[in-house]
Computed example of a mutant assay.
Amino acid sequence: MKLKSNVTVIIPCYNDGQYIIKAVDSILNQTIQADEIIIVDDGSGQETKNVLKTIYHPNVHIIHQENIGVSNTRNTAIAIAQTEYILNLDADDYFDPVFIEKAIQVLNENERVGVVGCLVKILKNNIFEKEIKKPLGGGARNFLVKNNGISGSMFRKKCWEEVSGYDEKMANGYEDWEFWISILSHNWMMHIIQEPLFIYRQKAISRDQTALVKFDFELRKYIFLKHKALYEAHFEFYAIELLRQNTLLKNNVRKAKNSADYTIGQLLLAPLRFLKKKNI
């Protein structure tokens, strides 16, 4: 019989019927079982609801609600969790079977660690990318410029309580990033297991992509203003990192312009630009 873990897994689900079974199975097949899996159906369509009806397991609890967003959904589920540790899992992602075992070992052995993540394998069009995502974790300073954690992480419920949960005003994305900053600014650390135990499914259209394309500035501004004291305390580090990223961006743009594809594209467009000018 598999050991219990003092872990509740939270899986928000919004129209992810084609992936949810894989996500749930990845938890049920862990070397150490979660005490409970709470799936929150956040107003999905009938197709996903039909898939959820096929899930029968004594450790799985399904909540149905109107669509209210991922932050509110997670807070609702975490509030009723009875365990010391919480593990987030989006319905379209999944874990390697040893993640829970390794994550609770870290939390049990180090009281300063509030959050445990790992390296990430990216699955695109059902094919694994060669590159492994390697978040830094660490303290709050590492999160000032970018999110150096992953959404699929395990954390202490008391960390969630200390920061009053996920910020439900962040309806357009980056709520994980802000949540980690809030926790780590309370003198917690994020530990990253140096193994790719989390599988992130990269889709052509996703909430993450929409946040980056449409709301990036507004979301970053909100995080900055909410945690302004933290940014001021690390102003020099923050400024230097922004300068470094600006240089990298310029270099990448220059390389792209010098690439063969870009040069050919410019040559092909040249006649069209000429004709446009002649018509003005």
Rank of each mutant, 00 (worst) to 15 (best):
D35L: 02
D35N: 15
D35S: 07
E36L: 06
I38E: 05
I38K: 09
I39A: 03
D42R: 06
D42M: 03
D42K: 06
G43R: 09
G43L: 08
G43T: 08
G43M: 05
S44V: 12
G45D: 14
Q46L: 09
E47G: 10
E47D: 14
T48S: 07
T48G: 04
K49D: 05
K49W: 01
K49V: 11
N50D: 15
V51D: 03
V51T: 09
L52W: 00
K53W: 01
K53Y: 03
K53T: 13
T54M: 06
T54P: 08
I55E: 04
I55W: 05
Y56G: 03
Y56P: 01
H57P: 06
H57V: 06
P58Q: 09
P58C: 02
N59Q: 11
V60H: 09
H61R: 10
I63N: 03
I63H: 03
I63L: 07
H64R: 13
H64L: 01
H64S: 15
E66L: 11
N67Q: 12
I68L: 06
V70L: 00
S71D: 01
N72T: 15
T73N: 12
N75H: 13
N75S: 10
T76D: 00
A77I: 12
A77R: 10
I78P: 11
I80Y: 03
I80P: 12
A81E: 11
Q82N: 15
Q82Y: 00
Q82A: 09
